[in-house]
Design a protein around this nucleic acid. Structure first.
Length: 619
RNA sequence: GGCGCUGUAGCUCAGUUGGUUAGAGCGUCGCCCUGUCACGGCGAAGGUCGUGGGUUCGAGCCCCAUCAGCGUCGCCA
């Protein structure tokens, strides 16, 4: 901390602050209070007053320029040596907070700054009031230079003062406002739902709130308002929306926070088409209003098609590079890896890497490691150079094989082919992730392009990887596709769901579905999932009973607002669009939360901390 | 919990094959400078190279462990 100056050491320069000419009200009578982004050439000779932070000081000895910054912009203010405030201005530093008054004047010809909206003018300072001093900030506030993530989160108020975060949170506001406006115009009601609800044991780990009045009992923080919004439909509200905070106690990712915000929507008497039309219109409205971008109608594809062409159920449609199933080409191959994959009913999936023929062996090896990171067992590469081909499996590949794969993947000389052999599911998944990687390397993922899509026709169930038991692919309140009820006893794994995902640039923005609205059908689904009637009663009794009182057909959707804003801001991390995010291990570094609490508070909650002698602080 | 990347001045970073006194830009402090806007000039302060151990005549650099941050797998109905 050697370079930082304690406030006391600057006290001398704080004391002789130039007195403001009059009281605040009096000053307003003489000069107009304006923002730092307001003044233009036409304001010449106006008497104005500005408040803001010192963005930068340029001291010419006989003349001092200060760029004064507030949330609206930057204005250059000038201190002339004949004014009493000049001496003080010599000691101003970045992030000091000032109030200046003076007169607006045009800058001398040739010294205008075209990069500032206010760059034609400046304010000749007549009075300076230092409202507050700043310590030397731990990182540069006036530029978007990279800074250590720890520091940014610990000094979040300074980080938020920087241009990037100011811009991102502004975009976030505009997006959320556009959402509210859109739904308001369609007669949706925004209804708040409680933050302390009952734990429903499916899904992610709950954040729990211990109860003081009921020893041993807990509230759960909502993972989403799912059941509550359905109950609002049963309650006859018809059209509901909410900007809803949600919490899930799971490990974080760049695109996943423990605490996040959803655009939550539900409507009664609707079809899948109604919901999709509503949400798609909303997003196109948001993009138009908040970003001034016209989005074409969304692409639609089935889950099956998405997997086959792009390997993932959230395809990035900003670029092509579609996958090719080349299992047939290797039907009788000698190559053990391929043969055993085929014999086990798996698949061999090929991906084109434009220009990849120039990669070195070492680079292909690194790419193979990446494939393993993605969950693959390995990768076969073929480099299509002008004078034939090189490959990690050269001895097993005939020229005819290579030519057939080349054609299937639409590759040309100079490209590489990447092949993945595994179960059909894994081969596609790994190839799909690699496709995104290749797209990234080839610069095909334009952050300013927006490729929306709907993915439909999801299977209702999937097999649990460990137990093989059927588990819902999404949540258990989703209605099966019309006509698929009959499969529930015969062949439940073939059931499809009335479920749809909205996808943007390779991110899942959210999902929606038509819900089950009859109690007996809901019970049947719970039963299929292995819940006993008693478990259903304990966990979802209130909900199933509500279905019994004339629940209307209904459906809806929830979109991750954080992700939407992140993509709109061309950011790659949710923390960049969240004012006060937690770090990767869910700590708030500014507040230093979570933190121990006084022992008495713990006792009031009828809790004891296992394995700790001192369960709490003495704060 | 696994794997990977990163950690050097307040900040962002460089630091050769292991070899003398660890550098730069920005910032900070002092002096000079009347038209700058990344102002400029001169000077100064500022480092346990994340931490602990090891190898070595010698470690910022190699090895092991550990901490922190980020990314990722698991996980996220």
């Amino acid at each position: 901390m050697g370079g930082r100056i304690a406030p006391g050491s600057r006290a001398s320069s704080c004391c002789n602050t130039t007195t403001f000419p009059a009281s605040r009200k009096g000053a307003q009578a003489m000069s107009d209070r304006v923002s730092c982004g307001a003044l233009r050439a036409g304001d010449e000779r106006r008497a104005v007053e500005l408040d803001g932070w010192v963005n930068r000081r340029r001291d010419h000895g006989g003349l001092i320029f200060v760029d004064l910054r507030d949330h609206e912009g930057i204005t250059q203010v000038v201190f002339d040596p004949q004014h009493p405030s000049f001496a003080e201005a010599e000691h101003l530093r970045n992030e000091d907070v000032l109030r200046v008054s003076g007169s607006v004047r045009r800058r001398p010809a040739g010294t205008e700054n075209p990069r500032l909206a206010t760059g034609d003018v400046e304010v000749a300072v007549e009075a300076l009031e230092i409202l507050n001093r700043s310590l030397v900030p731990p990182f540069h506030v006036n530029v978007d230079e990279d800074a250590d993530e720890n520091l940014r989160l610990e000094y979040r108020y300074l980080d938020l003062r920087r241009p990037r975060m100011q811009r991102n949170l502004r975009v976030r506001h505009r997006i959320v406002k556009a959402m509210r406006d859109f739904f308001d115009s369609r007669n949706f009601l925004e209804i708040e739902t409680p933050m302390m609800i009952k734990s429903t044991p499916e899904g992610a780990r709950d954040y729990l709130v211990p109860s003081r009045l009921y020893p041993g009992s807990f509230y759960a923080l909502p993972q989403s308002p799912q059941l509550l919004k359905q109950i609002l439909m049963i309650a006859g509200f018809g059209k509901y929306m909410q900007i809803a905070r949600c919490m899930r106690d799971e490990d974080q990712r760049a695109d996943r926070l423990v605490e996040f915000t959803q655009l939550d929507v539900e409507l009664s008497f609707c079809t899948e088409e109604d919901v999709m039309e509503t949400m798609e219109s909303c997003m196109r409205y948001v993009w138009r209003e908040a970003l001034d971008v016209e989005v074409p109608p969304f692409v639609r594809m089935t889950h099956q098609e998405a997997i086959a062409r792009f390997g993932l159920d959230k395809p990035d449609l900003r670029f092509g590079l579609e996958l090719a199933d080349v299992s047939g080409i290797f039907a009788g191959t000698e190559f053990g890896v391929f043969r055993s994959a085929i014999e086990r009913g798996g698949a061999i999936v090929a991906l084109r890497y434009p220009g990849g023929a120039g990669l070195s062996r070492r680079e292909f090896d690194a790419l193979t490691e990446t494939a393993k990171q993605f969950g693959g067992k390995g990768m076969v590469w073929i480099a299509l150079s002008g004078d034939g081909h090189k490959s990690s499996a050269a001895r097993f590949l005939t020229d005819a094989n290579v030519e057939a794969v080349r054609r299937a993947a639409a590759a040309q000389t100079g490209d590489a082919l990447l092949l993945f052999a595994d179960s059909a599911e894994l081969a596609h998944a790994v190839a799909g992730k690699m496709r995104n990687e290749v797209g990234e390397r080839c610069g095909l993922r334009d952050p300013n392009a927006f490729a929306f899509a709907w993915v439909t026709g999801f299977p209702y169930l999937e097999a649990d990887e460990e137990t093989g038991k059927p588990i819902p692919a999404h949540h258990p309140f989703t209605a099966p596709a019309p006509g698929d009820w009959e499969l529930i006893d015969r062949d439940p794994m073939r059931m499809r769901a009335q479920h749809y995902d909205m996808v943007l640039n390779g991110y899942e923005l959210g999902s929606g579905s038509i819900r089950i609205h009859k109690a007996d059908e809901q019970r049947k689904i719970f039963e299929m999932l292995g819940l006993t009637p008693q478990q259903v009663q304990d966990r979802f009794g209130f909900f199933v009973r509500a279905l019994d009182y004339g629940a209307p057909p209904h459906g809806g959707m929830a979109l991750g607002i954080d992700r939407i804003v992140m993509i709109a801001c061309a950011e790659e991390n949710l923390r960049e669009v969240t004012a006060f995010p937690k770090n990767q291990v869910a700590r708030d570094l500014m507040m230093d939360a979570p933190a121990p609490v006084p022992e008495q508070l713990v006792r009031d909650l009828h809790l004891r901390i296992a394995g700790h002698d001192r369960p709490s602080s003495s704060v």
